[in-house]
Deep mutational scan, measured.
Amino acid sequence: TRVETATETAWISLVTALHLVLGLSAVLGLLLLRWQFPAHYRRLRHALW
Rank of each mutant, 00 (worst) to 15 (best):
T1E: 09
T1M: 15
V3T: 01
V3M: 07
E4R: 09
T5V: 06
T5F: 02
A6G: 14
A6I: 07
A6C: 15
T7I: 12
T7G: 11
T7M: 12
T7A: 11
E8C: 05
E8H: 01
T9P: 15
T9M: 11
T9F: 13
A10P: 14
A10T: 13
W11L: 10
W11V: 12
W11H: 12
I12M: 13
L14F: 01
L14Y: 03
L14G: 00
V15L: 10
V15G: 02
T16F: 15
T16Y: 05
A17V: 11
L18M: 15
L18V: 08
L18C: 07
L18G: 01
H19G: 03
H19S: 00
H19P: 00
L20P: 03
L20W: 07
V21L: 11
V21T: 11
V21M: 12
L22H: 04
L22F: 06
L22W: 06
L22K: 01
L22S: 09
L22V: 11
L22T: 08
L24E: 01
L24S: 07
L24H: 00
L24D: 02
S25T: 12
S25Q: 08
A26N: 02
A26D: 00
A26G: 10
V27M: 08
V27L: 13
V27Y: 10
L28D: 04
L28I: 05
L28R: 03
G29F: 13
L31W: 14
L32Y: 04
L32R: 04
L32K: 04
L33H: 03
L33E: 00
L33I: 08
R34V: 06
R34H: 06
R34Y: 05
R34Q: 02
Q36F: 06
Q36A: 15
F37H: 06
F37L: 10
P38Q: 15
P38R: 14
A39N: 15
A39K: 12
A39L: 13
A39Q: 14
H40S: 10
H40T: 09
H40M: 10
H40V: 07
Y41V: 14
Y41M: 11
Y41S: 08
R43A: 11
R43D: 08
L44D: 05
R45W: 04
R45A: 07
R45K: 15
R45H: 07
H46C: 14
H46M: 09
H46D: 09
H46Q: 10
A47C: 07
A47Q: 06
L48Y: 05
L48T: 06
L48Q: 02
W49E: 00
W49N: 15
W49Y: 06
